[in-house]
Write a protein that binds this DNA or RNA. Structure first.
Lengths: 341, 341
DNA sequence: CTGAAAGCGCTAACAC
DNA sequence: GTGTTAGCGCTTTCAG
């Protein structure tokens, strides 16, 4: 329908100048005489010229773009991270694209290759593992920064919170409230995030002299559905417990749904703690007690680290952000004076 | 640290062939003799060569990439749309990138320009408006398909549901259950989605002989926070109503939060209907009555339409998908026999 | 089946 | 201040 879009030569011809002048006018207007600039801009406007960024990138050898690869785009946890990344990126003239790994090796490879194919200059990873081919040969990795997660087999620049301490704090709070049989809805236990929070859970138990019962630990993928199904299964099997510590708000909310379906009330019958302090945590009923993470700050710092790497400044040191337990309505003390029936 | 990545010439040199042969080996292996191919592949492997896609695109004049631009990435509604788009894209060898418009003209322009700069071949819009410069001069738009929404001023290929009928059906259900004073939490009323659902609301009222009261219609941006704050404001002002029809699940859930904070119960005191049937609708308590949209199908169809456009096949006709009212626990009949106090 | 060479659209030296 | 020219890395005729 529409004719092929104009290129820099069309503009040059129309303005009666060379392509170099057009390029200069667009990039450094002050290096061009007033009337020349005028002519060029007129031609640009008339033709609706937009420089072909592919050609520009090919020439400049940098795309000023970064890809943010997340574990599961449907977890709202990543949204504020994204915003933090974007803020830092924008300030430095970078663009951000977001990709969904869905915990799938093929997809992960796909995005890593996208960077190697020069679609982007760097990759911010929010996933817990890497396909074997990259572990074997780290030279194949483009510039990478890990945010919130960690790749256990490799020493990559990382921005995160102290997940062990955060989890331990949450579980200690439950124990201090009189709970002893505490379920842990863990993340995938084969990667950092899952194991770190599980470790915190175990540490709190140990500190309180409570024996660790593997039967109380269930592993899921941080999603609503996982939380619901795991707790449902547990209740069907007749397990007994008075509290749940979930490794994400999503799993916590899913768990509450399952508890309700079995006629149990939160926090009257079961106390529940989540992780992340996403927006929905304060909107559900009862509002969720959860571990707050400074998501925006994490994203911002990760992007800054990325920029430092890209600029060749030596690898920046890892950064650890603080967390905070936000107590809301989904937890309460277990009445100690009530004798069991 | 790592040396610059190898290019096609490095591979050619190492394999002792021309760059053309390397290119051919990678693109059409069967057009190359067995032993040549072997030599080339060995060199590729040894060097860890990944073709620079920017250069390839520059030469081929097509990027096989599509950008999906959504209104607000934090609304889970878009996730299944994205999955549908991606499925259709993958089947046809396309990649999908997702951008967040945040209802902001500058961001919208940014993404449209990204396509015009050849980062992508086409744009799937899930936003309700376009910056003026594109309305004035449609030739400036790259290949576009609109999904779920509509740009009122322009006749663009569109995939959506019948929003008027869907909204009308939901409100008729409330009326049939005995509700008369029904709040409508509308979307932005200056674009298609907001006005279409409002129109359905009005039509249902009119059909039942209920006078339209503009004071019962509140406009928000489909978000959780908007739903909560609008209903909160209403209750503070002492408004009376027995039901709410929200233009999104997010607003409905936010509304329920506000109702609770004012001591009102759902559905005992107020019935609530949402729109979209997102995952969370079935997980909250009470589960949300809502209008189901076939999100995945919408996304899939939109991408197929995009591919048809890109292939030059004439502009495909618009597509309308059916919706369905899913009745759950957040609505109930208003007891008619109870005299008002 | 393979190689030489042109060129995608742009930028950056280097001249003038 | 502006033009000429080489070339970013790849694909694709066109010869051979």
């Amino acid at each position: 329908m529409v004719g092929a879009s104009p290129n820099i030569r069309d503009v040059a011809r129309r303005a009666g100048v060379s392509t170099a002048t057009v390029s200069r006018t667009l990039a450094q207007p002050d290096k061009v005489r007033e009337d020349t600039r005028q002519k060029v801009m007129e031609a640009v406007e008339a033709l609706g010229f937009v420089p072909n960024d592919r050609a520009r990138v090919l020439r400049r050898q940098t795309s000023k773009t970064v890809i943010l690869l997340v574990r599961d785009i449907s977890n709202p946890f990543y949204l504020d991270i994204y915003k933090g990344v974007e803020e830092a990126a924008f300030a430095a003239g970078y663009k951000v694209l977001m990709g969904d790994a869905r915990d799938d090796d093929e997809r992960i490879s796909h995005y890593i290759d996208a960077v190697r194919e020069r679609h982007a200059d760097g990759l911010i990873l929010m996933i817990g593992r890497l396909p074997a081919r990259f572990l074997e040969d780290p030279a194949r990795l483009p510039p990478v920064v890990v945010a919130s997660e960690a790749i256990q087999e490799m020493d990559l620049p990382t921005v995160k919170v102290d997940n062990v301490a955060a989890a331990q704090g949450a579980v200690e709070y439950l124990i201090a409230s009189g709970h002893h049989r505490i379920i842990h809805l863990a993340g995938p236990v084969d990667d950092y995030l899952g194991t770190a929070r599980l470790e915190g859970y175990r540490a709190a138990l140990e500190a309180a002299g409570i024996a660790y019962d593997p039967g109380l630990v269930l592993s899921g993928d941080f999603s609503l559905v996982a939380g619901r199904d795991l707790i449902d299964g547990l209740l069907v099997r007749g397990a007994e417990f008075s509290a749940i510590f979930a490794a994400s708000d999503q799993m916590a909310i899913g768990a509450i749904t399952a508890l309700r379906q079995h006629g149990l009330q939160v926090p009257k019958d079961v106390s529940v703690i989540g992780f992340d302090d996403t927006l929905i945590a304060s909107m559900v009923d009862p509002a969720l007690t959860t571990v707050h993470q400074p998501r925006r700050d994490i994203g911002f710092a990760a992007m800054q680290m990325m920029i430092a790497r890209l600029n060749g400044t030596m690898t920046p040191p890892d950064q650890i952000f603080p967390t905070e337990l936000v107590v809301r309505g989904s937890t309460r003390a277990r009445p100690v004076d009530t004798p069991s029936p």
